[in-house]
Design a protein around this nucleic acid. Structure first.
Lengths: 204, 204
DNA sequence: TGAGCCTCCTGACAATTGTCACGACGCACC
DNA sequence: GGTGCGTCGTGACAATTGTCAGGAGGCTCA
């Protein structure tokens, strides 16, 4: 068995991706074998380069890091996944672990710890930011029903009820009812606030 | 004169900061002499370490990169500033240049170009992402009056009119009038949409 | 089989939001 | 001195939004 751990990096921001590559490339036992900028490029690149560990950002175009994690676990179960994200969205942690990630790190953690996290994940351990784990437990599962979440998602940009109703093929009354339910469950005063809260908790 | 360019790095995400440091540290003619994680730490660190170029992220806690640029230009005019940001907010470019930045780079640019951008800025040249420059011209100056922008800012989280009025010590009618003006000027249909548009264009 | 939940709809009501017209003051500019 | 603009306020009106009650069918689970 070779001593170097082969890595795949996925992040939509080329500069960050390149910088992470440089950071991890400094470690003698790590080798970056593939870099991609979108979630749907993860599996093809992984099949080609057979990395030991995939480091995936959550925010990516076309397919996010969570979906990419799930797809990668199916296509290449031997590759372990370390999910990285910008800030503490509690819901993402739970969803990433459910999707089959072995580790979850926020970009606030010191750079020196990333290589360690990669090594632990490669060794079969689970790596989770402790403060984030507490937040995740506090935030818990999404209280929203599927429709409620869907209506909130459609309301994101500030679309009025009529537009949401058309988009989802529902009556305006139904949309308002679902919104009302979502507002109640998120303890918000508003549709706008409800969207923000649900989004912050990773419920959308 | 020494051949190495001394750098200060400012980014609130420790992982990204460390990664950028690793990336730039690979270049033999560049040396990272200071790293900070918030805008208000930029000037003190610069005064202590006297960098040639400061690489500042726009999004930072307490003081953003634009304000930090302006403060740094005053405190240490010999240090040139390269502003880096996550995505194309056209308004930021204009404001960063007005604040005295010598360069503006988005995190979408290839990692290899960052070192070049630093060298050009150090040489006294201006560095601007060309696509972003076009967007910036298209978006232009903010059409919003000071009060309108203020009211939009206060409405960000979805706060109702009553709360905004209390916060700004205005009557509810006045707040609604300013909001109405902002909605008209942004061509939005909504308060929520107006906030999004104005924010995307860097008008807040 | 019944209880509980989600979904979908209607209709009605109150609260909030957006628009408009109006008047007032201060300021800059010509 | 007049014009234009931003600011602040009022009052009134229409549109949108949020809440509630009620009824229907579907599903799961005990």
């Amino acid at each position: 068995m070779s001593a170097t751990i082969r890595l795949l990096l996925a992040d939509d921001q080329a500069l960050v991706r390149g910088a992470l590559s440089a950071l991890l490339g400094l470690e003698p036992d790590l080798e970056v074998v593939a870099e991609v900028g979108a979630g749907d490029e993860v599996v093809p690149a992984a099949l080609e380069h057979r990395p030991d560990v995939a480091v995936l950002d959550v925010e990516m175009p076309r397919m996010d890091g969570i979906a990419a994690t799930a797809a990668l676990r199916i296509a290449l179960p031997s590759t372990r996944v370390l999910v990285v994200t910008t800030f503490g969205r509690p819901g993402y942690l739970r969803r990433a672990m459910q999707a089959g990630a072995s580790g979850f790190v926020v970009k606030d953690t010191p750079a020196a710890q990333l290589a360690d996290a990669v090594r632990r994940v490669h060794a079969g351990l689970r790596v989770v930011d402790p403060t984030l784990a507490a937040d995740s437990l506090a935030a818990g599962e999404s209280p929203l029903s599927r429709r409620e979440a869907e209506v909130l998602r459609a309301s994101r940009g500030g679309a009025p009820v009529a537009a949401v109703a058309r988009q989802l093929h529902l009556s305006e009354g139904t949309v308002r009812n679902h919104l009302s339910g979502a507002i109640g469950k998120t303890l918000a005063a508003n549709r706008t606030e409800a969207v923000r809260i649900a989004d912050d908790n990773g419920w959308l």
